[in-house]
Design a binder for these strands. Structure first.
Lengths: 194, 194
DNA sequence: TTTTTTAATGAATCATTGTTCAATAATACG
DNA sequence: CGTATTATTGAACAATGATTCATTAAAAAA
């Protein structure tokens, strides 16, 4: 028998994230991914069924990571809802600090996967939204948050705002300190403009 | 001589918006656009240089419309900044009420055009952001808005949240009353969660 | 060492689809 | 009418790039 040498799957995913971020999913060639991963074109198909499966895997792992963290935060009983939101936002940004290309892929390519419900991305994403909703609901119940708000709309507005702030950071080549982005986002969510 | 019969350019744009909304830009075939517009495949190229030019035209006209409206709102001297924001949001949603497919295209396909700075879309979009910034700046100067905020980040957060709220509306096949979306967005922007 | 098994290769294939263009149709004009 | 001019057509073309697969290489087993 022959063993697989090195972690080629990881090499493919890393290369894909980098090139998807640079040129976008549709403009990225499998041959280019293979080249950057240091393997032959055909080898990509030993690890992934097709091109879409690569993007799918990237997003699935991303959302599973975010959701797992969010779930453990939601569970905590000794933290107030506002603080929980802060923690979620912290983790959200932390994830991208070490991998800025992933941020670019995240803000640009998700819609390919959500609308057609390929794989489990839509499912994980909804899990995430539902957990986020729990925090808001808890806050409203405890009268810490304003009860006027439509929770589904609010969670949607926040995730969109978060993504957009992340996009700004990623577009400006991270010259804007992520720390500043994070602080401001936390403030906006709680206090708004007035 | 022979005259052009009917408004084929409009037919192409309308068909494109509908199909881009349904299947996404990349999955849309020129032949399919032509079919829906009731013309031959080749005729599309009498009105648009290529496929990208169609998407470009859709977004250029959209942003020009939004920017023109925003500019006239900004100019008004007898309206306070908070009210100006409300007006902008009203117009934003109004634009899509009569054309829900356009909303779907708007929330999904813009990044194709912004990152490569094709055409004038990026320019118009930045004009829009700059005008929006003026309103916020005016509010901060007049001490109506909180001076703590980072204006560039805030305008980015708002536009992302807006787009995301619009996406929710478009995904749910408009069962959610747009009136409700609009009200909530206005509230979030001003007051946040607390 | 030889054999077996699996990993890896990358050029060739195949399918897709944007774009072109020679042919045709419709209208205006004299 | 007949002719000129322009609009329209849609099948053919060309380019692209995802995917396949016959071949080769490497490691394990005998």
């Amino acid at each position: 028998m022959r063993k697989r040498e090195g972690n080629k799957e990881k090499a493919i995913l890393d290369a894909s994230i980098k090139i998807f971020a640079q040129h976008g999913y549709h403009r990225t060639k499998i041959s280019s991914i293979a080249e950057h991963a240091g393997i032959a074109t055909g080898s990509v198909y030993l690890y992934f069924k097709n091109k879409e499966a690569i993007l799918l895997t990237i997003f699935e792992r991303l959302w599973v990571g975010l959701t797992d963290n969010l779930r453990s935060t939601v569970k905590q009983t000794d933290i107030d809802p506002a603080k929980k939101l802060d923690l979620v936002i912290d983790h959200f940004f932390d994830l991208f600090i070490t991998n800025p290309s992933l941020a670019t892929v995240f803000v640009n390519e998700q819609h390919h996967l959500i609308k057609d419900k390929r794989g489990n991305v839509a499912k994980h994403y909804n899990d995430f939204l539902d957990l986020a909703e729990e925090i808001i609901r808890e806050g409203v119940q405890k009268k810490v948050f304003n009860p006027e708000i439509d929770i589904k709309l609010f969670r949607q507005f926040i995730t969109g705002g978060l993504r957009s702030a992340l996009r700004l950071w990623s577009q400006q080549s991270h010259s804007l300190p992520l720390q500043r982005v994070r602080q401001n986002v936390k403030f906006f969510i709680k206090h708004g403009l007035l």
